[in-house]
Simulated assay, not measured.
Amino acid sequence: MSMESAIASTDQRFGLRRSIRLAGPLRLDSGASLTPVEIAYETYGTLNAQGSNAVLICHALTGDQFVASEHPVTGKPGWWTRAVGAGKPIDPERHFIICANVLGSCLGSSGPASIDPATGAPFAMRFPVITIADMVRAQAMLLDHLGVAQLAAVVGGSMGGMQALAWPTLYPERVRAVLAIATTARHSAQNIAFHEVGRQAIMADPRWRGGDYYASGEPPAAGLAVARMAAHITYLSEAGLTEKFGRKLQAREAKTFGFDADFQVESYLRHQGISFVERFDANSYLYITRATDYFDLAEDHGGSLANAFARTQARFCIISFDTDWLYPTTESRNIVHALHAAGRAATFVELSSPFGHDSFLLDAPEMNRVLDGFLRGGA
């Protein structure tokens, strides 16, 4: 039994969100259960009579469900309008497109800012720790509600790619094709280290208050901004930063011999941090980064990545970018080798781009051609 309603998030900066409230329970990897489960989502296009054209798009770490529609907080266009829309590889004229805000986030799905029905107050750090697999199980609950028995494809980049890879391991009969972009099958020590720097920046902010900052209306903005700044560096490439900023000064003729933003790159990072605080919740950042750090697709399959893919018959397309040092091409090759070892059909493409990890979100016509060809190949 489920009901559909508009759910208001606790932090009013994020406004009202259209969500599905499902009775649950959703059993989590931690052993905890979540009841009820709120899932905010967007859809585009129509499910065909055969129920065969559904495409699930999974968003990245701090993304959202507004993949091809205006973001209600920032007013910006959807984050993947380069790939989703009329005449694009993922086209609502051909596909029934679904994108859900992940569990643990702050754009309408259940997360630390949600109200705990047992107390009437926000969960904060009492929200259970979640995993990528838990996010996928929540998405499966949404698909059940929408009447989608099988996905023509699941598509995602970065953390979205982790979800895309997890889908056929958890629901091997429900996925016909998987498109995983700029991603990995497990977080490395370096990945975890960068996230820990960000988490510590948030928790060191006096306004964090152990996660109970909602009632004060004063979130740990400074800590969250620093966390975003540190993470944003990993999304770029050295060549891209050098080409865009070099050592150019910011609106001045000489160094100030102080600690203002003398360099353009400093000003850019500060802007990224400040703007991020306006659209994201600090506790959600803690939970979602922890979920990615826990991600290791082989862990539940005897340490064998090939075993993880043994039960699915899905086709796979794995895409990497040559300047991505967060999830480098070697990580994608490891996935492809495991797929081949499991006897799965897998296409692999490394694309050239100066933009680093974020390439999949930016102008990438070659990526669009690969997406389009792969999706049409399974039609």
Rank of each mutant, 00 (worst) to 15 (best):
D322W: 04
F295S: 06
W167H: 07
M3E: 13
S110Q: 03
F348C: 05
P220D: 08
V175Q: 02
I318Q: 00
A308D: 01
L351V: 11
F316A: 07
K244R: 15
Y44N: 02
P172L: 05
R344C: 13
S114D: 06
L151Y: 03
Q200V: 15
H187S: 15
A254K: 12
G210S: 08
H71S: 07
K255F: 15
A118N: 06
K76I: 11
A185F: 09
H301N: 14
F309G: 02
G156Q: 01
E173K: 06
A314D: 02
T242G: 05
D91R: 00
S304Y: 09
P128H: 05
D363N: 12
L297W: 04
G111W: 11
M229L: 07
P36Q: 04
H271E: 11
W325Q: 11
Q163C: 10
D260C: 13
H340D: 07
A182G: 12
F355E: 13
P354M: 07
A201K: 05
F348N: 01
V84A: 11
L146Y: 03
A254P: 00
R247A: 15
G45V: 12
A121W: 11
L151T: 04
A230Q: 06
S109T: 12
L351H: 03
Q65C: 13
S19H: 05
G147A: 04
R228Q: 07
G198P: 04
G217C: 07
R344E: 02
L375E: 02
P220R: 02
A310Q: 07
V102N: 09
E38M: 09
I130T: 14
A133H: 13
H95G: 03
H59Y: 08
A298S: 11
N101W: 01
D296A: 08
S5L: 14
G161D: 09
L362R: 15
A306E: 01
S359C: 04
Q150H: 12
G111H: 05
L236N: 14
S2K: 04
V55I: 15
F360E: 00
V175Y: 05
R94T: 12
E253V: 14
I115R: 05
E266I: 06
R247N: 14
R376Y: 10
T312H: 04
H357T: 08
W208T: 10
D212H: 13
G85H: 06
F194A: 14
H195Y: 14
V102M: 06
S114R: 00
Q12I: 14
R21L: 15
V148T: 05
A54C: 08
S275L: 10
E93K: 06
G246N: 05
F263S: 06
P220V: 11
Q12C: 06
E299T: 12
Q150R: 15
P92L: 03
M125E: 13
N283T: 08
P25S: 10
S352F: 12
E4S: 14
D281C: 09
S5K: 14
L371F: 15
A182Q: 00
Y235F: 12
T119M: 06
I202S: 05
T292W: 00
P365W: 09
M367K: 01
T323H: 09
R186A: 13
K76M: 14
F276T: 12
V226P: 00
V37I: 14
A204E: 05
A310E: 05
G75W: 03
T46A: 15
F259E: 10
